[in-house]
Design a binder for these strands. Structure first.
Lengths: 141, 141
DNA sequence: ACAAATAGTTTGAGAATCAAATTAAATTGG
DNA sequence: CCAATTTAATTTGATTCTCAAACTATTTGT
């Protein structure tokens, strides 16, 4: 296969992969009776740990105003807590509560199951190779 | 590295990849003054071609009621057209107009640029290998 | 110490989404 | 062949999400 074909095929495959992951996430999340945006927030917090409102808003792609409202609901649902930031009293940290962690872990397990399924027919070597590729791409992003 | 570590590392890397792609998409789309859900719809139509309302709704993860409203707007914006389906007059096909195609192409080009950037330091061989991995995963999905 | 910048919240309006009811067409079972 | 059922899409009303802009509190820079 020539170079251009691989390049555009790769793009196509990545878009398709992304689209399928999106659909999967959508369906999974709905099952748990939680909105996609809330799930996204919990996932970011579980994945990266507690962070400031502004960082989080940027990470999930909403304004801080939107995030304030969202966090309000997640706090009410006891999934998230606000942690005062002594260093800079303008800002606060938001992080998962124990219950939020549990929910995140359950979701994470489903992700793990999906990953295993997707790479079920991969050899150990292939899996390691793929991991390396993803890590390089993630670093470049 | 042992097998479990690769397995969970891979999961982690995939989630991170997905998250970063999401953020990227969010930012790119906003620049074009179009909502994320509309972009998602246009992307599905551009990627897979015209399809029935129900298929499309399922693909993008919304109810058909929501989709009807959304398509209404995209039709008004001249990006999408409704195509009667002679085979089954209950259903209709929706597809991109020429202008919709143009917008999709522009977006697609940005995706291509991103893909190129992400794999800039990959050798031809690595790129081909990665393509094969994605294709296998997409098939399993 | 004052002005400017930054973090977060509040608010009001508009957009997106859903579930349920509705319409229209196709399919199925008798 | 026809009535009943199923399927595809639309409409509607309520709810939720999101944004931009105004606002408060705190920090930073000069």
């Amino acid at each position: 296969m020539n170079s251009d074909k691989v390049e555009s095929g790769l793009n196509h495959a990545i878009v398709e992969f992304y689209e399928k992951l999106s659909s999967w996430e959508h369906a999974i999340v709905r099952e748990q009776g939680i909105s996609l945006s809330h799930a996204h927030t919990l996932e970011a917090l579980g994945f990266h740990g507690a962070m400031r409102m502004k960082e989080l808003a940027e990470k999930i792609g909403v304004t801080t105003g939107t995030l304030t409202v969202q966090i309000e609901k997640l706090v009410a649902a006891q999934l998230v807590e606000r942690i005062p930031n002594a260093q800079d009293r303008r800002s606060i940290l938001v992080g998962l509560t124990a219950e939020g962690q549990k929910l995140f872990q359950a979701h994470s397990d489903q992700h793990q199951a999906l990953t295993s399924e997707l790479t079920a027919d991969f050899s150990e070597e292939e899996r390691a190779l793929l991991l390396g590729f993803f890590e390089r791409m993630n670093r470049t992003f």
